[in-house]
Design a protein around this nucleic acid. Structure first.
Lengths: 154, 154
DNA sequence: TTGCTCCTCACGTCACGTGAGGTGGC
DNA sequence: TTGCTCCTCACGTCACGTGAGGTGGC
C-alpha cells in the first residue's frame, strides 16, 4: 500500500493534486489508517497515471471522469463499445493534431538554435538594431520563431 | 489590418484571449479605430500564432513573455545567443518528453479500440461483471487503458 | 435601419498552489 | 524524542469564460 506522498511521487505529481482528484471523485483510497492517512493500491497508481496522461493530452477532469464512468452508464455491451469507440477515436484525432503541432514547434525551435549559432561570436555593437541588416537574419528558410524572437526589435 | 475577431479566428482562439494577452503585455494592437476598435497587423497574427503554439507546448504566459523579452534584456549578442539557446534547448527537451507521452497514449487508445472490437457484438447479460471472466479481457497484450476503462468495474 | 461585431467592466470557473495550525508513524 | 510526512481548512492564482450594458461600422 502507498501513502499519498508515495503515490504522488510515483506519478510525478503533488499530494495536493492527489487530494483534489479524490475530492472531485476521480480516485479513492482503499482505506484510511488509524490516524486518517490515505492508503492507495498499485491499481490506483495505474489509474492516476492514466489520468495524468489524459490531462497532458488536454482533457478536463470532467471529460476524464466521463470516460471512467462511460461503461457503467451503458445498458448493453454493444452500446458501451460503440460509445467508448467514438470517444476514443475523437481523442486519438485530437492527439494526432496536438502531436503534429508539438513536432512542428520542436523542429522550428531546433532550426532556430542552429540559425543563431553564428550569433555566439557576433561582435557588432548595438546588436538589437543591427540584426535587421545582418545576413544571418536573411536566410530564406529562417524559421518563424527566429524572426519573432530574434530578428524583430521589441 | 485585422479586427480582434478576425485575429482570433485566424489563430483559432477567442476575442477574450486576444484582449487578455494584450492586458498581460504579450501583444499590442498597432492602432485603435475612431470608435476604439483594436487593429492588428499580419506580423501580430504571426506572433499570436507562435504564442498559441508555445501555450500548447505547456509554457505559462510569464515564460512566453520572458522568451520575447530575452534578447532585449541582454547587453551583447553572444550573451543573448547563449541564453536563448539554453532556453530553447530546455523547451525542445520538454517537447520531446511531451510528444513521447502523447504518442504512447495515442497508440494505447488505438489498441484499446481494436481490443474492444469484439464487444460490439457481445450478447452477455450483466456485461459489466461478465467482462472479468471474458477471454477478450485476458489477452496478454491488453493495454492499460483497456484494463482501467473497460475490464474493471466502477 | 437592422444585425453582427466590437467595447469595457466585473464576477465566475477550473485546476490546482500555498500557507496556517495541528497530528501521525518509522 | 526528533524530523519528516501526513491531515484539514481556507484563501490565492493562473488563464481565461461569461454575461451585462452599451456602441461601432459595412
Amino acid at each position: 500500500l502507498l501513502t499519498t506522498g508515495e503515490l504522488a511521487r510515483q506519478c510525478e505529481t503533488t499530494v495536493r493534486t492527489v487530494r483534489f482528484y479524490e475530492e472531485e471523485g476521480l480516485i479513492e483510497p482503499v482505506a484510511r489508517s488509524e490516524g486518517g492517512h490515505r492508503m492507495f493500491t498499485r491499481a490506483q497508481q495505474q489509474k492516476l497515471q492514466l489520468i495524468m496522461d489524459l490531462r497532458e493530452a488536454g482533457l478536463s477532469l470532467d471529460q476524464i471522469k466521463a470516460l471512467f464512468e462511460l461503461k457503467s452508464r451503458c445498458t448493453s455491451a454493444p452500446q458501451a463499445a460503440q460509445q467508448m469507440t467514438r470517444a476514443l477515436e475523437a481523442q486519438i484525432a485530437s492527439l494526432q493534431r496536438k502531436i503534429a503541432v508539438l513536432r512542428r514547434l520542436r523542429d522550428e525551435l531546433a532550426s532556430m538554435v542552429s540559425a543563431i549559432r553564428a550569433c555566439h561570436t557576433c561582435e557588432r555593437p548595438q546588436f538589437h538594431d543591427r540584426c535587421q541588416t545582418c545576413e544571418v537574419m536573411h536566410r530564406n528558410d529562417l524559421p518563424r520563431a527566429a524572426r519573432l524572437l530574434w530578428s524583430s526589435r521589441e
